[in-house]
Design a protein around this nucleic acid. Structure first.
Lengths: 186, 186
DNA sequence: TACAGTTGCCAACAAGCGTTGACCAACAGG
DNA sequence: CCTGTTGGTCAACGCTTGTTGGCAACTGTA
């Protein structure tokens, strides 16, 4: 275990500012100088503590989806629970929106996104779909619908998608996700 | 009608190079200099013919989805036809992938995307969903699923999404889109 | 007190960006 | 022929970017 450093506060401030900037501006437009300004420190500190911009991004994009255990839930409600959980997670802060934004423009961001979904959504699906060998495919289908809603609602902001309530979205998307998870392959 | 100019070939070369660059690199990283290099002309020509970078983007992102008339189709196959059409359109060239990439990072790109879907997908849904007043919402739901699949398959390239055949995708997503279009509100 | 390590700021670097204006060659109409 | 328009090149501008190294201030140890 490493002992606390005096610069921990600075490191944390940088990381927080970086997350916000990456989230709202994407990788290219989130400049180190702007991040440093937000964190009220000198740009060179960012370099000292995170090496370079890519290192900063790697450090800033460690994300926990915090998915619930689905095994203990009534099987026919899994879809709705999952959709609701993602919506809640998405509206809590801008981290996931940022990840999406960066994943689209940046190769490293896309890789990070692949890893997050494979490691965190994959296991959840493995327990509930008919043929475990098909779990990755089911997970990808679920991801396509959930990321698609996130894209239209939080990034592109298509008006009808923005105006829907979370309950309505759950009611519409829940059965879709449910089917992707538990239905027999078509 | 405007008569042909000697510079039409140059204009077209710029536009084509711009579309490819915007598609593969996104708005920020697609530099005017790189576009000009691809088109084998001087960067200043881009400025002369398209004013500035935003003008070039606007000119390069006029997109025709070319959606079919759904009125004449068997009502229960609309979903599958729509999904298949989008997949085909998406794989034909990189224009839509580029639009997606730019729409995520750039305000003007997002606006353009809103317009395209409102003008081209909106009318299609209006004819087939139970309550015409709900058409925009239905269109947004359809867009969420179709754009979500495009995102995971063509931009993020999640392996399971890439490996699925177009037929499989149509079989999985078709019923979803069908339900978003024609089912009673949940 | 002296000294080494850490933390931070400052000024500068090279490179790349969008953009501009001067300048030349080819053409068109009189 | 001259003249004005069009198509195109070239060199430069002002600015921002990521990144670097030097230098001052602080902290903890001996």
């Amino acid at each position: 275990m490493t002992t606390a450093r005096r610069s921990d506060a600075t490191r944390a401030a940088i990381l927080e500012a970086a997350r916000e900037r990456f989230a709202s501006d994407g990788y290219e437009r989130a400049t180190i100088r702007a991040i440093a300004r937000d964190a009220d420190i000198d740009p060179s500190m960012v370099m000292r503590y995170y090496g370079n911009k890519e290192g900063l991004f790697a450090a800033a994009s460690e994300i926990e989806l915090g998915l619930p255990e689905l095994g203990s839930l009534p099987a026919q409600h899994i879809g709705a629970v999952l959709v609701g959980h993602f919506l809640e997670r998405w509206e809590r802060d801008e981290v996931l929106t940022g990840m999406l934004r960066v994943g689209v423009t940046n190769e490293a961001g896309a890789a990070r996104m692949q890893a997050i979904f494979a490691q965190q959504l994959g296991p959840v699906t493995r327990g509930v779909c008919p043929d475990p060998a098909e779990a990755p495919r089911r997970a990808a289908l679920v991801a396509s619908q959930i990321l698609g809603m996130a894209l239209t609602r939080y990034v592109l902001r298509l008006p009808p998608a923005v105006e829907m309530s979370t309950d309505e979205i759950v009611a519409w998307l829940g059965p879709t996700v449910q089917r992707y998870l538990t239905a027999e392959a078509p």
